[in-house]
C-alpha cells in the first residue's frame, strides 16, 4: 500500500513549508510529509545518514524540490538523484518560484518528472499543492524499489 510511503518536501522557507503543509492538511496527507530545510538534508534522508540514520527504510513516494536552497541547491540534488541507479526511479517534482527558461530547461534536462511554478495566489497554490500531493502521494504508483538495502 502506497500510504506508507512518505512525501519528501524540500523547502528552506518555513513560511512556504507551513503553507504547503496547511494545504496538504486539508487533504489529510500532511502526516506523510517529511520536511527537509536544505539540499544536504534531502541527500541525508535519501542515503539514510546523519539525522535520518535510523529512519524506516524505503524511498519516498515523491520528492518536491525547491530550486533555491542553502548548502546544496535543488538542481544539484536533482543531478545526484538522477545519477544514482537506486534513487533514479523516485519521481522528482520541481516546486519553485522561478519561471526562468534556463531553470526549466536545465531541470528537464537533468530528468525532473514535473516542474511547477508556485502561484502567488494562495487559492491557486492551495489547489496546486493539493493536487500534487494527492497525485504523487496517493494516486501515482511508485516504483517497487526499497531503500538502499546494501548494508
Amino acid at each position: 500500500m502506497t500510504a506508507t510511503k512518505p512525501i519528501l518536501l524540500a523547502e528552506d522557507n518555513p513560511r512556504d513549508a507551513e503553507l504547503a503543509l496547511a494545504a496538504m492538511e486539508a487533504e489529510h496527507i500532511s502526516d506523510k510529509v517529511v520536511l527537509c530545510r536544505d539540499g544536504a538534508e534531502v541527500l541525508d534522508y535519501l542515503y539514510c545518514r546523519g539525522q535520518f540514520k535510523a529512519r524506516p527504510r524505503g524511498n519516498p513516494a515523491v520528492v518536491f524540490l525547491d530550486l533555491k536552497m542553502p548548502k546544496v541547491n535543488g538542481l544539484e540534488v536533482l543531478r545526484t538523484i538522477k545519477a544514482d541507479v537506486k534513487l533514479r526511479p523516485i519521481p522528482v517534482v520541481m516546486l519553485t518560484s522561478s519561471r526562468e527558461e534556463r531553470d526549466l530547461t536545465e531541470s528537464y534536462a537533468l530528468g525532473a518528472n514535473a516542474y511547477v511554478v508556485k502561484p502567488v495566489e494562495f487559492n491557486k497554490f492551495l489547489s496546486a499543492v493539493k493536487e500534487l500531493g494527492t497525485f504523487w502521494g496517493v494516486i501515482n504508483e511508485p516504483p517497487p524499489e526499497g531503500c538502499r538495502s546494501t548494508h
Binding site: N13, R15, D16, L19, A22, L67, K68, T96, S97, S98, R99, E100, K118, P119, V120, E121, F122, N123, F125, L126
Partner: peptide, 18 residues
C-alpha cells in the same frame, strides 16, 4: 526578482487566507 520577490507575496496571500 522572479524568485525572491514572489515568495513574500505568496506568504501575504497565504497567511491572509489561513
Amino acid at each position: 526578482v522572479s524568485h525572491d520577490l514572489r515568495a513574500p507575496l505568496r506568504h501575504i496571500d497565504g497567511y491572509a487566507a489561513l
